[in-house]
Design a protein around this nucleic acid. Structure first.
Lengths: 94, 94
DNA sequence: GGTTATTTGTTCGTATGTATC
DNA sequence: AGATACATACGAACAAATAAC
């Protein structure tokens, strides 16, 4: 199913389509604040795309402020003003 | 600074302008023999161009004999006849 | 303590499509 | 028609830090 969610023929870049799906997951609360989103490897498998494309999607989410990445650990859902999150904790995620 | 060094309105292609700047760095000794030059990614950031353009600049340098590229490693300043270098070593750079 | 697996970071190679000059 | 430039996408390989066992 997941792979079918991507339309390679669409004028919308694949990485944006993936980003949109992840944003939907976040807005829906499927992906919660300070919780990890799927790894690049997961996205590659789930959407059948190249890692480059998966990384582009995550980069896009980061630029939009939806997530933040901790090197060698993963990418986490950020506290968004619209979603109403607490102040950042020094302890960090997990 | 860096971005200002490129003139998109110039009749000289952007990739040649970048190549010229890198050659200047080499001639000046700012970039030394067998040392890495900035990665394509670096050039993209530094000059605000597409990767394609950065690659073209490096390709140009390679064709001129100024550098040589090791896949997945980087591009290095070559020993130039004019600069007086030894014969290539099998050990490679680094 | 040490080995392995995971995960992001980095780098070059290649190809396609579009737009501009 | 051709060269240049940008954006996108897939591939391949290795590094480095972290986590798991």
């Amino acid at each position: 199913m997941a792979a079918g969610e991507i339309d390679h023929g669409s004028p919308t870049p694949v990485y944006r389509q993936i980003a949109a799906l992840l944003i939907a997951d976040i807005e829906r609360g499927d992906l919660k604040v300070n919780r990890k989103i799927p790894s690049e490897s997961d996205l590659v498998k789930r959407f059948g795309v190249a890692r480059d494309t998966a990384r582009n999607a995550v980069r896009h989410l980061r630029e939009q402020g939806y997530v933040f990445t901790v090197p060698q650990r993963g990418t986490y859902v950020a506290q968004r003003p619209s979603t109403g999150g607490e102040a950042p904790d020094a302890a960090g995620p997990e």
